[in-house]
């Protein structure tokens, strides 16, 4: 496995903010909101975090992998593809869509 990209597996992310807070380069940002989910047979609705946005700024990321290590749900993983090579810094800010693991899209 090449350590050339950090992919987000969106379904596993619980918006716990651990990766954002541990990142030494401060390159991850995340926003979420909470919804109530009522399951059949449950006494009261369950609170579930819904991920609204997740961004990695690859112009700051130094590929240390701390975010992958601290994620308790394995929602971040090393991946083979690469962040864009570009002359525009804004192109290096990747959101949920662009961060999917290779082979998923």
């Amino acid at each position: 496995m090449k350590h050339s990209f950090i992919a987000l597996i969106e379904d596993k992310c619980t918006s716990c903010m651990l990766c954002v807070r541990e990142c030494p380069a401060w390159c991850i940002s995340l926003d979420s909101h909470t919804i109530d989910v009522t399951e059949e047979g449950a006494r009261r609705p369950r609170k579930v975090n819904v991920l609204d946005s997740f961004e990695i700024d690859y112009s700051l990321c130094m590929y240390c992998g701390v975010c992958i290590d601290v994620c308790p749900f394995d929602a971040l993983a090393w991946d083979e593809h690469r962040a864009l090579v570009t002359t525009n810094r804004e192109d290096m800010l990747l959101g949920i869509e662009e961060l999917g693991p290779s082979g998923s899209s």
């Binding site: 903010m17 807070r21 991850i28 995340l30 909101h33």
Partner: peptide
């Protein structure tokens, strides 16, 4: 970026399990 508290809305309203302690890097 880690200072953001998704549970605390812009108007200061808390939703969900907002942490009591202020986070720092």
């Amino acid at each position: 970026p880690g200072g953001a508290e998704p549970e605390i809305k812009e108007d200061g309203r808390k939703v969900g399990n907002a942490s009591r302690r202020r986070q720092r890097p």
